[in-house]
Each structure stands twice: as C-alpha cells, then as structure tokens.
Amino acid sequence: MTSEKEMTFEMAMKELESIVEKLEQGDVEIEKALEYYQKGMELSKICTNKLTHVQEKMVQIMNEQGETLPFEVQED
C-alpha cells in the first residue's frame, strides 16, 4: 500500500470516494465492510491532514532556462 507521504491528496480522495461507493452498494461481507471502514477512516485522516497541516509552499519563479528561484510577491 502507498504510504501517507507518497499518497497525493488526489489519490487519497479518490480512494475514499470509491470506498464510500463500495459500501453504499451494500451486500459487502462484514469483514470486508470493516476493512473498508478502517481504510476509509485512514484515508479521511490523510485528506484532513493534507489540507490542514500544510507546510507553506514557496512560490517560485522560472527563468528562460527553466531554472527556478524563490519569488516574493511585491505588495504595493
């Protein structure tokens, strides 16, 4: 399984949605349902973490050679 670090927000969200969908369809074995539930809770935690505990991303500026440098927005 992909660890939390490797998993992108998009992947986590998509998987969470698909798990909810699977559970919605019903007729899931109880063991499987519990497994889905557990996984779903993990994923929702990953999503929440990714959205709330954000490291401030530096804005970059790219020159014509495709090299990037930090960029500060000029306030006027």
Binding site: F9, M13, L16, E17, I19, V20, L23, E24, G26, V28, I30, A33, L34, Y37, G40, M41, S44, C47, T48, L51, T52
Partner: peptide, 25 residues
C-alpha cells in the same frame, strides 16, 4: 481546501452511517 475538508468530513460521516447500517442489517 475548506470545501474539501467539508467533503472529507461528509465522506467520513457517510462511512460511519454506512457501517452502522451494514452492522444493523
């Protein structure tokens, strides 16, 4: 992000309900 958080929470609640429902069944 705010909407996504809301969505995530909604999905989480849905999960809880679904499992409850499943167990009840």
């Amino acid at each position: 992000s705010k909407q996504l958080l809301e969505k995530t929470n909604a999905l989480k609640n849905q999960l809880n309900q679904l499992l409850d429902h499943q167990i009840t069944q």
